[in-house]
């Protein structure tokens, strides 16, 4: 965990509204584990005030600029332009100064070596699954079920295929792959074989649906969650999720940044939203 004042190496639109940014990032090849994230800051700019959390898509090395220099280490993040922060990011180029705090959080656990793995990704939620696939593909059969609203939301699938991952694509409007929800594909796969481990990342409704299906099939599930966060280190308490057994009397709030962003499904409270903790005071920290 370190804060690097570093630079952008490249920043390209890979699908309408989706960008892939490569950032110079010393030590990340050694340190970063699949599922971890960084807090990204556009330097010397206000707004945005706060950093943005981004899952690490992949790490790697680029050839050095000169033969006596060490190769350049980088990370790649993928983002969708959704607000003021990502709008600024969209305009960054090679050499632009940025800051990276990380790698942060707990990553995925890899599970049994010879058992089949199913990755479920919804839109931008696909990002943290790539490094995971890279790590697991040598020991296990890995399938990716990728869903999105339209074909524009289906990103980097060919890269998963190049790793040797068997990929299934579904879109809600049928513009690419099967028409329908990615969770319908998961249901089918688990009916065929439930002796697998599932790893999911995507919008919350998708994750909740995946959890329902996996718990019905008694299939182990790890999820990577997204949350609004200010600090990324467990101080602001903005990014909490309800832990298993959370009640009004015995509250259990887990920081997505510190305990997560990857959780075993059994660590979390699912389904009920009626136990919202009524606070006496919302105005103070």
């Amino acid at each position: 965990m370190k804060n690097h004042k570093t630079i952008v190496l490249s920043n390209q639109e890979i699908s309408p509204g989706y960008y892939r940014m490569r950032i110079l990032a010393p030590d990340y090849n050694k340190l970063a584990r699949p599922g971890q994230f960084v807090m990204f800051r556009v330097q010397r700019s206000l707004p945005p005030l706060l950093r943005r959390p981004f899952g690490i898509f992949r790490v790697g090395f680029m050839p050095a600029d000169c033969d006596t220099m060490p190769p350049k280490e980088f990370i790649e993040i993928i983002y969708k332009v959704v607000g003021s922060g990502t709008e600024i990011m969209q305009g960054l180029h090679y050499g632009d100064p940025v800051e990276l705090l990380g790698p942060l959080g707990q990553g995925f656990e890899f599970g049994e070596a010879d058992e089949e793995k199913i990755l479920v990704g919804g839109g931008i939620g696909l990002v943290p699954l790539y490094m995971l696939a890279e790590k697991m593909i040598d020991h296990s059969k890995v399938r990716l079920l990728m869903g999105g609203r339209t074909r524009d939301d289906i990103i980097t699938v060919t890269e998963f295929e190049r790793l040797g991952v068997e990929t299934y694509v579904s879109t809600e409007d049928g513009s690419l792959g099967e028409a329908g929800l990615v969770t319908q594909v998961l249901e089918k796969k688990l009916q065929e074989n439930n002796q697998v481990s599932v790893y999911a990342c995507g919008p919350m409704p998708m994750i909740e649906a995946v959890e329902k299906i996996c718990s019905a099939h008694r299939t182990p599930l790890q999820v990577s969650l997204e949350a609004l966060m200010a600090c990324g280190v467990g101080a602001c308490l903005g990014c909490v999720v309800k832990g298993a057994g959370h009640t009004q009397e015995q509250p259990s709030y887990l920081c997505t940044c510190k305990v997560g962003p990857v959780f075993h499904a059994r660590q979390l409270a699912w389904g009920s939203d009626d136990d919202a903790a009524a606070s006496d005071c919302g105005v103070c920290r």
């Binding site: 206000l46 707004p47 945005p48 005030l49 706060l50 949350a227 609004l228 966060m229 200010a230 602001c236 308490l237 903005g238 990014c239 909490v240 999720v241 009004q248 509250p251 709030y253 919202a276 903790a277 606070s279 005071c281 919302g282 105005v283 103070c284 920290r285």
Partner: peptide, 20 residues
């Protein structure tokens, strides 16, 4: 326990919080 989420949001040159 604190409040429900969302507990924070960014505003112009600042942030709002209701951590509880």
């Amino acid at each position: 326990a604190g409040n429900r989420t969302p507990r924070i949001c960014e505003t112009v040159s600042g942030m709002l919080n209701a951590i509880g």
